[in-house]
Design a protein around this nucleic acid. Structure first.
Length: 316
RNA sequence: GCAGUGCUCA
């Protein structure tokens, strides 16, 4: 079953759920063993392709096939429902799994809480937080980033910042780079990228290693608060710890340069990306389309769009 | 032994 599950998961994660289903039926017919992992793979695959009917069908029959869905099976569906904005269905399923005697864990709660926060469903957010506590779970960094990220998304910068400061100052909260990254984001929103910058450089002393997201967040802050030259300077000369700029870093500056129609910087960046072996992706291309429109190079714009339609979204 | 959560670029 272990070996076959690997294959099932590979198929399901690559959008070939019906092939996975065929393979699963073949296993069944041959009398080869399968288990709850196998069904969970199918559920994952059908959710990924948004074939909800098949996903829920798998969920409904697996129990009668000797494979009771467990917390992970339910959580997989919940995650996809939430990512699709179907929060009411998610809340319904959350109740249902409890009724079926399957207790949600903190991962499950974090997923649903995140979507509630992103939809600013304040009442339900409070209720769920209370439920988490009542079930004996303590909020972890995922809980906290879900909460703070939602606040930030709703434009409640000050509230998010206060919340994060509380977490950071607290003795008994686990803090990691992601928690700090949202805090950097709030600082940048308040045009305090300098403060974020000095804080990121002191994180190591607290035993937290900044990642590329930390630096890219601040890089964007510098682009918005100051100018592209300052951003380029940070890009080139600053110490990124053991990290190095990645495609997102390039796209961050490229986006800023495209927005203001800065031809020389756009050119320079494209050369550098080629030289350093970074391939443009769909985000880079979208930036360039904005750029072409901004400077009135409509033929170039259409050419790029056409090439994306025929050659796929990643240009060359 | 095999499966599920957060933070950056349009």
């Amino acid at each position: 079953a272990y070996f076959h599950n690997k294959i099932l998961w590979a198929l399901c994660k690559s959008g070939q759920s019906y092939n996975a289903l065929a393979f699963f039926c073949y296993l069944k017919k041959k009398g080869i063993v399968y288990n709850v992992y196998s069904y969970t793979a199918l559920v994952y695959g059908f959710c990924l392709e948004k074939i909800w009917g098949e996903a829920f069908y798998c969920l409904s029959v697996m129990g009668t096939d000797g494979c009771n869905p467990n917390v992970i099976t339910y959580t997989v569906i919940l995650k996809f429902l939430c990512d699709d904005g179907k929060i009411q269905e998610a809340l319904g399923l959350l109740e249902k799994m409890e009724k079926e005697g399957c207790d949600p864990d903190l991962v499950t709660f974090n997923i649903v809480l995140r979507e509630l926060c992103h939809q600013n469903m304040v009442v339900e957010m409070g209720e769920l937080l209370e439920l988490i506590d009542r079930k004996g779970f303590a909020p972890d960094p995922f809980t906290n980033t879900a909460w703070a990220g939602g606040l930030l998304k709703m434009g409640k910068v000050e509230t998010a910042k206060r919340f994060l400061l509380n977490i950071i100052m607290s003795r008994d909260c686990v803090i990691d780079a992601a928690v700090y990254n949202i805090y950097f984001h709030t600082l940048c929103c308040e045009h305090k990228s300098e403060e974020a910058l000095s804080l990121v450089n002191s994180l190591m002393k607290v035993g937290i290693k900044p990642n590329n997201i930390s630096y890219n967040t601040i890089l964007k802050g510098i682009c918005e608060e100051k100018n592209i030259d300052e951003a380029l300077e940070f890009f080139d000369r600053s110490r990124w710890g053991t990290n190095t700029p990645d495609l997102v870093s390039f796209n961050t500056i490229l986006s800023a340069a495209c927005k203001e129609g800065n031809t020389s910087v756009v050119r320079k960046l494209l050369c550098r990306m080629e030289y350093e072996g970074f391939k443009l992706n769909v985000v880079s291309a979208t930036c360039l389309i904005h750029y072409f429109c901004k400077v009135g190079k409509i033929p170039e714009c259409l050419k790029l769009l056409e090439s994306m339609m025929t050659n796929g979204p990643n240009p060359n």
